[in-house]
């Protein structure tokens, strides 16, 4: 659990973070959204003390994060940034081994962990271990960057615009991977982005920041349905609201008994994608399939109800 308690950061005369308090429960993903200059990155960097707050405190599992020397704290917290920051003079394996090396793990354990992580990110260890960062594609570099952040099995992972430099298709894949990994290890993740779409897709909770202040910190559905300020509303984009709501649910959640014609939709598909598919194919309803077996159907009408403002 990460507790940010009345954190303020002042640079000269400028208050970059203004008395922000928020709590990230263990094993959840909190996404901080805001425009550039909103203080979102500064706020996140107070967690691993890349920024020392002017006032206020950050507690991790109840303990003040200033109890340890900063570098020891940082070795226990994973950190992935935009543009990945891979060390260009080290191989993929050496990059991933950085924090385990700093922590003094033995060579065997490090080598095993490197291979395990490469496997996890669907990169063949034999082929990738000895490559240099510049020999990888942008997406691969990004994956190695996250693998490196996870190398020492941290409970907490901080991510600063990790997918900012990726094209939309690779980004979607990377986001899927992150969700899978988070579900598997139960890592507590704080992620900073300027992209509301990404925030809704990844966050269990979303914090919206503007001009150093935390405007709203709620579940995605609440942010969409009940934006606390006009700024939050604008950030979501009023015309996008129904579709954003739809994207929060899966087809499986909306499936009802019954039959429908045409190609089945996968149960894992988001309701938004299902809606689009029904509109495009001109159908009123479609069958829902899980692992190849038809488990029910979704109807255009049901989806439309889901997209309406919650009462």
């Amino acid at each position: 659990m990460i507790e940010i308690d009345a954190v303020t950061k002042v640079y000269g005369t400028q208050t970059v973070v203004d008395a922000v308090s928020m709590t990230v429960p263990s094993g959840t993903i909190a996404v901080i959204v805001g425009t550039s200059g909103s203080g979102k990155t500064t706020l996140m960097r107070t967690i691993n003390r890349l920024v020392e707050p002017t006032s206020g405190a950050v507690r991790i599992d109840g303990e003040d994060n200033r109890a340890l020397p900063a570098y020891e704290l940082r070795r226990r917290i994973g950190y992935a940034i935009q543009g990945h920051g891979l060390f260009p003079h080290r191989t993929v394996a050496q990059n991933i081994a950085t924090v385990p090396g700093l922590l003094g793990w033995d060579q065997k354990r490090i080598a095993n962990r490197v291979d395990e992580l490469l496997d996890l990110f669907q990169l063949d260890p034999a082929a990738f271990r000895e490559r240099m960062p510049h020999e990888l594609s942008g997406g691969q570099q990004q994956r190695i960057g996250v693998a490196r952040a996870l190398a020492a099995e941290p409970n907490i992972l901080l991510m600063d615009e990790p997918y900012g430099a990726l094209d939309p298709i690779i980004r979607a894949k990377a986001q899927e991977d992150l969700l899978a990994i988070q579900a598997r290890f139960g890592t507590t993740i704080v992620l900073v982005t300027h992209d509301m779409e990404e925030a809704i897709r990844l966050g269990h909770r979303i914090a919206v920041m503007d001009a150093g202040k935390l405007l709203q910190y709620s579940k995605p559905a609440d942010i969409i349905a009940k934006p606390a300020t006009p700024f939050v509303k604008e950030l979501i984009g009023a015309p996008e609201r129904p579709f954003r709501l739809l994207s929060l649910v899966r087809v499986a959640d909306l499936a009802e008994p019954g039959e429908a014609a045409g190609a089945p939709l996968d149960a894992g598909l988001s309701a938004r994608d299902a809606y689009a598919e029904l509109l495009w194919s001109g159908r009123e309803a479609a069958p829902v399939a899980r692992d190849g077996a038809i488990v029910g159907r979704v109807r255009l009408q049901g989806l439309a109800k889901q997209a309406a403002r919650p009462s």
Binding site: R74, R75, Y79, G85, F87, G145, R148
Partner: peptide, 25 residues
């Protein structure tokens, strides 16, 4: 800057960052 930031963010001390990252680069 991203490389330097990553080194600090992963918990390298000033000296480790100098010896392991900045000087080799």
């Amino acid at each position: 800057p991203a490389v330097r930031e990553a080194a600090t963010g992963m918990g390298m001390t000033q000296r480790q960052r100098l010896v392991q990252v900045e000087l080799p680069l």
